[in-house]
């Protein structure tokens, strides 16, 4: 399959420098992020953990270019982020596939926006659909697929743009445990092929430990990074990893950190990009 390399030499260095973001308007305005700084090395897989409402989605929205910081700078490969762009692929918890387009047209959408001819974009879309394991479903509409299949299509749709960084906001948070496990393996497989930098938000400590090279832990409002953990387990990883003592120890450490600040205050669950999210997940322990 010729959908792999190319990404190998692609950079994907993310630099976030003392970024502060205010949300809301008028009297309701508040500091959602306070001087957040970190870096992602090219090809690194980093998970972002933190209590509900601490500003994870806000940070991702800023990296995607949909929210403007009031202070600080965000850059990809040395170029300041000034708005949404296909080089930074965005995946939400609930799919945002276009219900009026078939799987094939959804996946080919990014190329259509770039003006690629129909035949070529369909060919590339078919390859990616095959890669995420959905061969045969090209003509289905998103409404006819299961949640896991929808997220596969969503990932394929983002990958067709060959993004240098993947921004994923609890992408598997709404899936059942078994589907989630399969999706995690799929994502690691894809990540291995494309070598894209990944910033992955999750509530699930196991998921963070299983997937990432590094875990950033955020504290509650105003959001800031309170600790960075290395999850340097050997790759490729398998589900047995969760049974090892080292894994358990790191997990305990994460739990302690997240509980340290007490129970997260109950806040109205707004999302910085506007739409309501259907589910309120607690930490899956």
């Amino acid at each position: 399959m010729n959908v792999q390399p190319q990404g190998q030499q692609a950079p994907g260095r993310v630099e976030i420098d003392r970024v502060s973001i205010r949300l809301g308007s008028g009297a309701g305005a508040f500091q959602a992020l306070d001087e957040v700084s970190f870096r992602l090395a090219p090809g690194e897989f980093v998970c972002l953990l933190g209590p509900s409402g601490c500003g994870k989605s806000t940070l991702l929205g800023a990296l995607a270019g949909h929210l403007k910081p009031v202070a600080g700078s965000l850059a990809l490969d040395g170029v300041a982020i000034g708005g949404p762009a296909p080089e930074r692929g965005l995946v939400f918890q609930h799919h945002t596939l276009f219900p009026w387009k078939t799987v094939l047209d959804n996946v080919a959408f990014g190329l259509k926006m770039r003006g690629v001819a129909a035949a070529e974009r369909k060919k590339q879309a078919r390859e990616l659909i095959e890669l995420v394991g959905l061969g045969g479903f090209e003509r289905h509409y998103p409404g006819q697929l299961s949640g896991g299949m929808q997220q596969r299509v969503e990932i394929a749709r983002v990958l067709i743009n060959r993004p240098r960084v993947l921004l994923m906001d609890e992408p598997f948070g709404a899936l059942d445990a078994l589907t989630r496990l399969k999706m995690q393996e799929l994502l690691l497989d894809i990540w291995g092929r494309f070598g894209t930098t990944v910033l992955f938000i999750t509530h699930d400590i196991d998921e963070a430990l299983f997937l990432s090279d590094r875990i950033l832990i955020m504290g509650p409002r105003p959001g800031r990074i309170i600790e960075t953990l290395e999850a340097g387990f050997a790759r490729p990883r398998s589900a047995e990893l969760a049974m090892t003592a080292q894994f358990a120890q790191l997990k305990r450490h994460c739990l302690a950190l997240l509980h340290h600040d007490g129970v997260a205050p109950v806040l109205p669950r707004l999302t910085p990009l506007g739409a309501p999210q259907a589910r309120d997940l607690q930490f899956a322990i």
Partner: peptide, 8 residues
């Protein structure tokens, strides 16, 4: 937001 991120 997704459409804009996909280059629309």
């Amino acid at each position: 937001a997704s459409a804009r991120s996909l280059g629309t």
